[in-house]
Design a protein around this nucleic acid. Structure first.
Length: 781
RNA sequence: GCGAGAGUGGCGGAACUGGCAGACGCGCUGGACUUAGGAUCCAGUGAGGCAACUCGUGGGGGUUCGACUCCCCCCUCUCGCACCA
């Protein structure tokens, strides 16, 4: 709920600052969590989802969180997913949606495939079940075509948290290098290796292939140690599937009794297989340079393979290193390249490789294409048709949406097929191309497809002619302020960026990033752990709202810490917020005869008594602080403490006698009205209910949220006097009240004349006197 | 291992550009009003001395008249990535 409270308070605040605010809400309603919950309760996912939406809407209402409900979108409604399907067709048309047999992540419990991004530590992100590997035909989106732009444009997202940008950078993980072919001695075949360090090629003293590398079979077959080698391959594969290889990185390996030729040294170098080389990355084979790669070094050490130093750090004359060296240096033992700086050698060797046709420069990414098909019921059907005559045929745009049938056995099956496959009514279709009998694709799309474009739909939520109105999107988007949790750092936020870039590249929108500013709020914890239903440590909002009101809950959430940090829930601190709101209310009640009439014209400071001027000034100071804290940095916590200070100052003011030295004068009521008016307006975005009520009771008509924020006048916020701190050798020895703006020379005189200071100094002459205007004097002796 | 963030009273947290450390709130102590207080109000509240003063922002160095803030080294915690060639 923290997310919504921050967002709502900010939206209300920006409105009162005079901004045009669009705060919409949508339901990412398809997907596994809803579907699993529904299956568990034996009800239809549609029913479960509808009830949940109703419940959450009611929650928002109770919290005082308002959205523009005329723009509500729901991803599981045909009116929405029709356009998700349209998006699929756009990608297909552009050649960016393709079907491929691939070894995929299969969750045996959810009975579906998962995207790489949804696999955490070898287990299903949702249910924690270890994933299995399956070989299936699946739909992919070619996100890798945008890898460079997704990576490079992170630099333009200045208002994104560094943390999130870094996570995306790591995820995409671009590396530049060379793909180089090594000939297998005596066969005429070759093995291609990707390396980011072509400059170390003279130090490549062996090759390592992934156990799944296609060349392995040919190398093993018919060899003397064939049986031993096959067993090793099986063992390595088992290790990888069990996830052991991830958690216990080892340096196991087996020599294949075969050699390759290093194209630069012309030596025969042994070929090994080892599980530390991954088939999924690069070419599934590496040239091992033990002197300059720690993994290769450990491997070579274990099996007694040659370690040849080819990069020497400046100023050092090491021979064989005790560990690998991956830093800068110049080349040695590298023939004609000896003496070159490492980066120079990179270029020269890469050029030589290309010239001689042994390979080419290449860029590799860790990012893989996005696997989007799911063998589950609760999702948008993939708008494709399989025709025995024509092959794969897209559903014509005019036939969208492909409606998800309601009456289907929606439980997942174990055979790798979608529940939709059981529905003949759904599956059977005439081929749009030849008219013959054909079958619909029965998989559904990953929910992250639904949520990758929803922000466009907010500009035309009921439009049934197009997915989004371009003119409005160009005017309003990208989203000015996105507020969410870090958990979306790579999944949702990367996909949404990809789709936006795709639509931009296709000329359908004129911006190419979806979210200009991103704010990731911290988690709410209790007893040190994240509040979650699974942990069972959730404080139900109603236990706060029932006795103390929604405003108290909102205020506490905003007050208890900076919004980007995690907060620790504390029941007792909540009551402090409740007390504050009660104090404000009682202050109104005790002065209702004064406050019932609104202020007409701000008080003029020159007509006020000192006590009145104090409160008047404090009010201006508070306005400045609150506007500054909230507007730029969402620092509601310090804004609220400023408002508490103002309320405390008003308490003191109300206790002041009429007349006299410290008393109030004829303008008392106006000063009080001015302060109370500011307090209520500044507080309103955070605690809307009580402030709206107070606004009405203090003689105003119309909603407070149609009113502007009060403005701070720096001239009126300025303190008349300040505490001059007098230090001797940087230790505070005295202080004196002095008019603001007293010049440096005067400050020095005052400090040196201070009796306490004279006593301390005696007849020692100051060596130096440091004066900081409006702050302090430091006398160095 | 790599990357990001954090470390301040009993607790959550303040401190602008290097200038009064601990704002604001919680808790605690004492008092007032009360049949009562878990309501409200007042006072106090970093530690030691109980005065003058001294010590205090994870630890150790440094720069400076002056460091929570800047620089170097180290420790701890949280999060993310992790055999990416």
């Amino acid at each position: 709920g923290r997310n919504y409270v921050i967002g709502d308070s900010l939206a209300r605040f920006k409105m009162m600052e005079g901004r045009e605010v669009l705060a919409p809400m949508g339901w990412d309603a398809f997907g596994l969590p809803a579907e699993n919950a529904a299956i568990q309760r034996d009800i239809h996912p549609a029913t479960w989802t509808r009830d949940n939406i109703a419940r959450m809407k009611q929650q928002f209402h109770r919290w005082g969180v308002v959205y523009d409900w005329t723009r509500e979108v729901t991803s599981c409604e045909p009116a929405y997913y029709r356009w998700t399907q349209w998006l699929f067709l756009q990608l297909y048309d552009a050649g960016l949606a393709y079907r491929q047999a691939a070894s995929v992540n299969w969750c045996p419990r959810d009975r579906t495939v998962l995207a790489n991004e949804q696999v955490v530590d070898g287990a299903c992100e949702r249910c924690g079940t270890p994933i299995e590997e399956r070989h299936l035909e699946q739909w992919f989106f070619r996100i890798t075509a945008f890898a460079d732009r997704l990576l490079d444009d992170l630099a333009t997202l200045a208002d994104w948290p560094e943390r999130v940008a870094t996570m995306q950078r790591n995820w995409i993980d671009r590396s530049e290098g060379v793909e180089l072919e090594f000939e297998i001695a005596g066969t005429g075949r070759g093995v291609r290796c990707f390396t980011t360090r072509p400059d170390t090629v003279f130090g490549a003293t062996f090759l390592v292939l992934s156990p799944e590398h296609p060349e392995v079979e040919a190398l093993i077959a018919g060899r003397a140690r064939e049986k031993e080698m096959r067993e090793a391959v099986a063992r390595f594969t088992a290790q990888r599937l069990s996830g052991k290889a991830r958690t216990e990185p080892g340096r196991d390996g087996v020599f294949l009794d075969a050699y390759a030729v290093n194209p630069f040294t012309k030596e025969n170098i042994p070929i090994w297989i080892a599980p530390y080389v991954l088939m999924e990355y690069g070419t599934g084979a590496i040239m091992a340079v033990p002197a300059h790669d720690q993994r290769d070094f450990e491997f070579a050490t274990r099996y007694g393979l040659t370690i040849r130093e080819v990069i020497r750090p400046a100023g050092a004359d090491t021979t064989l290193p005790r560990s690998s060296y991956s830093g800068d240096g110049t080349l040695v033992n590298s023939g004609e390249y000896d003496g070159l700086a490492q980066n120079e050698a990179f270029e020269r060797i890469a050029a030589a490789v290309e010239r001689e046709g042994r390979g080419k420069r290449r860029v590799n990414y860790r990012l893989r294409d996005w696997l989007i098909s799911r063998q589950r019921y609760w999702g948008a059907p993939i708008p494709m048709i399989h025709c025995p005559a024509c092959g794969i045929v897209p559903v014509p745009e005019k036939d969208l949406p492909v409606v998800l049938p309601h009456d289907v056995d929606f439980r997942p099956r174990g055979d790798g097929k979608s529940p939709l496959a059981t529905s003949d009514a759904f599956r059977r279709v005439a081929c749009p191309r030849c008219g013959g009998a054909a079958a619909r694709d029965t998989d559904t799309m990953d929910t992250f497809v639904d949520s990758s474009w929803y922000f466009l739909r907010y500009l035309g939520p009921r439009d049934d002619m197009r997915a989004f109105p371009r003119d409005l999107c160009d005017a309003w988007l990208p989203v000015d302020q996105y507020i969410g949790g870090v958990e979306h750092a790579i999944l949702h936020l990367l996909y949404a960026r990809f789709i936006t870039k795709f639509l931009h590249a296709r000329g359908l929108i004129s911006f190419d990033e979806p979210f200009a500013r991103l704010f990731t709020q911290g988690m709410v914890c209790k007893n040190g752990v994240k509040m979650s239903k699974i942990k069972g440590n959730v404080v139900p909002p109603d236990t706060i709202i029932e006795p103390m009101g929604a405003d108290t809950m909102r205020l506490y959430i905003l007050f208890c810490g900076p919004p980007e940090r995690d907060i620790e829930w504390n029941d007792e601190s909540v009551e402090g917020c409740y007390r504050f709101l009660n104090r404000v209310w009682r202050m109104y009640e005790a002065n209702d005869s004064v406050l019932a009439r609104p202020l007409r014209g701000a008080p003029r400071p020159e007509e006020l008594t000192p006590a009145e001027r104090n409160l008047f000034r404090k009010t201006h100071q508070t306005i400045a602080r609150v506007l500054g804290d909230v507007s730029d940095h969402f620092r509601f916590n310090t804004a609220i403490s400023a408002l508490m200070e103002l309320s405390n100052a008003m308490g003191v003011f109300l206790d002041a006698p009429a007349g006299g030295e410290d008393g109030t004068g004829p303008h008392r009521d106006d000063v009080l009205r001015f302060a109370f008016d500011a307090l209520v307006r500044l507080l309103a975005p955070m605690t809307p209910h009580i402030c709206e009520e107070l606004w009405e009771r203090t003689g105003h008509s119309g909603s407070i949220f149609r009113m502007p924020m009060p403005a701070a006048d720096p001239a009126h916020a300025r303190d008349e006097m300040f505490d001059l701190v007098i230090q001797v050798n940087s230790r505070i020895r005295a202080r004196e009240s002095v008019p603001t703006g007293t010049d440096a020379e005067q400050m020095k005189t005052i400090a040196l004349a201070n009796p306490r200071i004279r006593e301390i100094l005696g007849d020692t002459a100051p060596k130096r006197v440091v004066v900081i205007q409006n702050r302090l004097v430091n006398i160095v002796v």
